[in-house]
Amino acid sequence: MFVIDCPNCGSRDQSEFTYAGEAHIARPTESENMTDAEWAEFVFMRTNTKGLFAERWWHATGCRKFFNMLRNTATDEIHAVYRIGEKPPKVTANLPLTPAGESSIGSGNDAVKIMTRDEENAS
């Protein structure tokens, strides 16, 4: 289970939070001129990143405010929490060696576990 460091309330259990999806998707400003394809891109299409991912969370049973988080979706490691309107900070993450490979930590799938570059260098 995650412990999330809410920028307003401090460290709390994940069950207090509601997930709010991919961050930094700006609402189009000239929506009256948009094509159906552009609408589909805004409403439906998502990067669904395996690796470092910027996402929104809502502290539903705390301060009830939205904030952004940078999490590695291959390991569930949380790298940064930052406020709405801010840009994601630069961090280094333990990423899979291949696009669909599994990280050395955080995956239950030992069958396809692939070492990270750091680990490979160390061994």
Partner: peptide, 13 residues
């Protein structure tokens, strides 16, 4: 589980 993840594990709640 509500969050996007590729870790093949979820939360206890």
């Amino acid at each position: 589980d509500a969050q996007l993840s590729y870790t093949q594990r979820g939360n206890l709640d």
